[in-house]
Simulated scan of single mutants.
Amino acid sequence: MIEPALALPGLLVLVIAVSLGVVLRRDLTRFEVDYGALGVAAGAMLALILWRAGPLGALEALAIATLPGLVAEALRRYRPGRMGAGDPWLFAALGLAAGPDYMLVTLIAACLFGSVVALVWSRLRGRRLFGSMVPAALALVPAMALAITLRLVDGAGGLPAGMHALAVPLDPGDAFGLLFAAGAFLFGLWLGPRRPARPGARRGGFHPTPKGEKP
């Protein structure tokens, strides 16, 4: 019989895996982010963090999630055509999965995954490197999986002690301050100029597909 202490995290990991699989498939086939599936994955991640690190760990993870999410949103608004409407939420989910303890390692992994994906994707489409829109989920979902794996391995005491030296120091006061600053920044973005909507664009994290290119 499976102990309840093991059944809960196992169930949460299963929910995360299935939900992120849906997100990945949608982004690959339609260049869209499935907000519903991503929301389910994020909720399960938060529940897993609460189980593993308690309310303080969840607060820190939420605070860290604002950093990549808001940076991506700012880039999306002020560098039109570089990323889709749903990509900032993918970056925020990446920050949530990583939290302060695994953020640096996860970001490095995401950059490596992204470079490989961009190279392979561009080659397959016969375009120059970074000359083709790339589904962000193809790089970010594996990075999220790495972050969740690191959490589970660390919870079992399997991570080398040196890994903890890469953690981003964050106390509750810093976390609250970061959340407050993120809210103010988001409000500023909301008040700022918006780029015109792409003709025919749909809701649901739509990517503006380049001319002559199929999703």
Rank of each mutant, 00 (worst) to 15 (best):
F187D: 09
F180T: 14
L178W: 00
L189A: 15
F187W: 15
V141T: 09
G155M: 02
P196S: 12
L140D: 10
V168R: 00
W190T: 12
P135A: 10
A147V: 00
G157H: 06
L159I: 02
F176R: 11
W190H: 13
F185L: 15
G157R: 07
A143G: 09
A145Q: 08
G157S: 10
V141W: 05
M163S: 01
L191C: 15
V168L: 05
T149P: 09
M163Q: 01
L179V: 08
P142F: 02
M163G: 04
A139M: 10
D174G: 12
H164N: 05
R151G: 04
V141H: 01
A145Y: 02
F176Y: 06
P169H: 08
V134H: 08
L189F: 02
R195D: 12
A167F: 06
F187I: 10
A145H: 00
S132T: 15
L170M: 03
G162A: 03
A136I: 08
A143E: 13
S132N: 09
L146H: 03
R151S: 05
R195I: 08
M133R: 14
V168N: 00
A143L: 06
G188T: 10
F187P: 08
L191F: 15
D174I: 13
L138H: 05
L159R: 04
G177C: 03
G155K: 05
G192M: 12
M133A: 15
F176G: 06
M163T: 01
I148A: 03
P135E: 10
A182C: 12
S132Y: 11
G173W: 14
P193W: 11
G131Y: 10
L179H: 02
A143M: 06
G155R: 01
R194P: 03
R195N: 11
I148D: 01
L191W: 13
A156R: 01
A161F: 11
L150H: 03
F180K: 14
F180I: 07
S132R: 15
M163P: 04
R195L: 13
L150W: 04
R194V: 11
H164V: 04
V141C: 06
G158R: 02
G158M: 06
G177Y: 02
V153Y: 07
D174Y: 08
L150P: 00
G177I: 04
L150E: 03
P135Y: 13
D174S: 12
R194H: 15
P196M: 14
P172L: 08
L138P: 09
L138E: 09
L179P: 08
L159S: 01
A136Q: 10
R151I: 00
L159K: 03
V134L: 08
P193N: 11
G158T: 01
T149F: 12
I148N: 04
L179W: 00
D154I: 00
V168Q: 03
S132W: 09
G188D: 13
D171F: 11
V153F: 13
P193I: 10
L159E: 03
D171W: 12
L170F: 02
L146P: 07
A182Q: 04
A161C: 07
P142C: 07
P160Y: 06
G177F: 05
D154P: 00
G162I: 12
L166W: 07
G188Q: 07
A165H: 03
P169G: 05
W190K: 13
D174K: 11
A167R: 01
G183F: 05
A161S: 04
A184I: 06
M144P: 11
L179Q: 06
R151H: 15
A156Q: 02
A165I: 10
F187S: 10
I148V: 15
A137Y: 07
V153L: 14
D174E: 00
P169K: 14
